[in-house]
Design a binder for these strands. Structure first.
Length: 529
DNA sequence: CGTTTTTGACCAGCGC
DNA sequence: GCGCTGGTCAAAAACG
């Protein structure tokens, strides 16, 4: 109820985009930022209803100005509350009542107008989000058909392709999703049936407000297996990440997935970005070649959550904050942390679903799929040559990606839910099943080399969509604590890659994918220099 | 007083 | 085997 009240108040707050209290995370000591109490969840706020979990409340919220909440100082609702009290007081003093009533009415009208604007803005955001989802699924399905044909050809010809080892690794990976074969197969059939069905299924899964995953879902959802394993390793001394005790296939199969990372480069003055999760700093090291220390965080939203992140400033440009996420949450995420988590999950899924071979310069080498890429370079790049497969989202350069929010102030503590979870895991589960269910279009997402092209094409498709980049850039920029986009003359965040890191930048897909059961390997990562 | 951050120490992987 | 580096642990300090 408190949350609903806050959200309700938020909707009526004239300057709701202002900076909110600091996030509960810090990386460099002073200037710690606490987690925002009021969060702007652009991705999930497709309409007014997204602000409330209660339908009744929802309808009230959508009808203009709603109930006053005396406990919320400095908000429009408080004005209404004041209005009510003042009206009562005026009964004993009518001399000034007319003038004050006029003033109050004007204030009410202003608030109404403000609410209308905010709602329309939210609606627009939601529409754009849904459009991107639809486009992504279309692209996936389209590519899936192509891959199916390609797969049949490959089976006839190349049994010793360079990426066979990578595919073998995937195939050997513990079949955490296999336990749910039947269910996932049905789901996949639904997904492949039609775009509409796909979106319905996924949107149901994606909305953490409406369908919050069970807290103990780890026990039930095979997709949590990886996280559980990671948790176990965390619990053991020295966290043997590679678990040498495990031999043979399982280890081989496990490593490449657990190591996958998603990295985000963005400009920020804040010590770290607020991603909607709570983090605890557990270490700090000086990294070679960078005067800035690297901070290590782990997720504290749930006991044993295996997600970790690294935060470090770029050595070349200290205004660039590089954050790297690894692992997937074993707990439900707050709405504020869901949207971008899905985005980065998709990015990681695309990375992981490809081969482990380097895929540099995908855009230039693979122009056939999406010849009309609007950007000379990309906002997402893949690097499989690094020790860990890493996808880097570079938001330090500007293109016209802020068009959705031309003059929207960026709240310092707007949330930036990067830690991976959700759809990536779903995809990965399907990837694993793919060896068993070759006929399912989506299932084929992750099969070795032939998936590289899919990864590339989907990535390109996403990257080529101005709406997507706009939304992603906006979300990322809002997440940057107090760092207004400064790359462009008009405050536009660029979607271009930046080569200051050692990652190889590729046009990769960063899909805004609907949420889903937590996946075996979701991660969000920052490239480190 | 409980939680979080700091920071030196420890460990594993890797290259020579 | 040794040294370097990245990552983590854990005791102490700081914080609220």
């Amino acid at each position: 109820m408190d949350r609903q009240r806050r959200e309700l108040t938020f909707l009526h707050t004239p300057d709701f985009l202002r900076r909110s209290p600091a996030p509960a995370e810090s990386s460099y000591g002073a200037g710690d930022i606490k987690p925002p109490i009021r969060e702007v969840d652009f991705f999930s706020s497709g309409n007014c209803s997204k602000f409330s979990t209660d339908e009744e409340e929802e309808s009230k919220n959508c009808n203009g100005i709603s109930r006053a909440t005396p406990s919320e100082p400095g908000t429009g609702l408080n004005l209404l509350s004041l209005n009510s009290g003042t009206t009562t007081a005026l009964e004993g003093d009518r001399s000034n009542s007319d003038a004050e009533m006029r003033m109050l009415r004007e204030q009410l009208e202003k608030l109404h107008e403000e609410n209308r604007k905010l709602r329309s803005m939210l609606d627009q955001i939601g529409k754009n989000y849904n459009n991107l989802q639809a486009q992504l699924m279309m692209a996936i399905q389209k590519q899936a058909h192509l891959n199916q044909r390609e797969q049949q050809r490959e089976e006839m010809t190349s049994m010793s392709s360079p990426t066979k080892s990578a595919q073998q690794l995937m195939d050997l990976r513990p079949t955490c999703a296999a336990m749910d074969d039947v269910k996932d197969e049905q789901k996949t059939r639904e997904v492949s049936a039609s775009p509409t069905t796909t979106m319905e299924v996924m949107s149901k899964e994606s909305d953490p407000i409406r369908t919050p995953p069970p807290l103990n879902s780890t026990n039930n959802n095979p997709n949590f297996e990886d996280g559980d394993r990671a948790s176990q390793s965390w619990g053991s001394p020295k966290s043997p990440r590679l678990e040498p005790s495990k031999g043979g296939d399982e280890q081989l199969a496990d490593v490449p997935f657990r190591k996958a990372r998603v990295s985000v480069r963005a400009r920020s003055e804040a010590p770290s970005i607020s991603d909607g999760c709570q983090w605890r700093k557990y270490g700090q090291k000086m990294a070679k070649g960078n005067p800035c220390p690297r901070a290590y965080y782990r997720c504290t939203m749930a006991v044993g959550c295996p997600v970790r992140k690294q935060v470090q400033r770029c050595a070349d440009d200290k205004t660039i904050l590089i954050t790297t996420y690894e692992g997937n949450h074993n707990h439900p995420l707050p709405p504020a942390a869901t949207a971008m988590a899905n985005t980065t999950s998709a990015a990681a899924a695309m990375l992981l679903s490809g081969s482990t071979t380097s895929k540099e310069t995908l855009a230039s080498t693979n122009p056939g799929y999406f010849p009309s890429l609007p950007y000379p370079s990309t906002m997402a790049t893949l690097s499989a040559s690094a020790p860990f497969p890493t996808i880097t989202l570079d938001l330090t350069q500007n293109h016209n990606t802020m068009q959705l929010f031309p003059r929207m102030p960026l709240p310092a503590s707007a949330t930036f839910p990067l830690p991976l979870h959700g759809y990536a895991a779903q995809i990965m589960g399907q990837v694993q099943q793919s060896t068993k269910l070759p006929a399912m279009p989506l299932v084929q997402l992750g099969l070795g080399q032939r998936h590289a092209s899919l990864v590339e094409s989907v990535s390109a498709a996403i990257a080529s969509d101005p709406n997507f980049t706009s939304v992603l850039a906006a979300a990322l920029s809002t997440a940057m604590g107090g760092a207004p986009p400064r790359n462009g003359p008009d405050g536009i965040i660029n979607a271009n890659n930046n080569n200051s890191g050692n990652n190889h930048f590729l046009p990769a897909g960063v899909g805004v994918l609907p949420g889903s059961p937590q996946l075996p390997q979701s991660c969000t990562t920052f490239s480190t220099n």
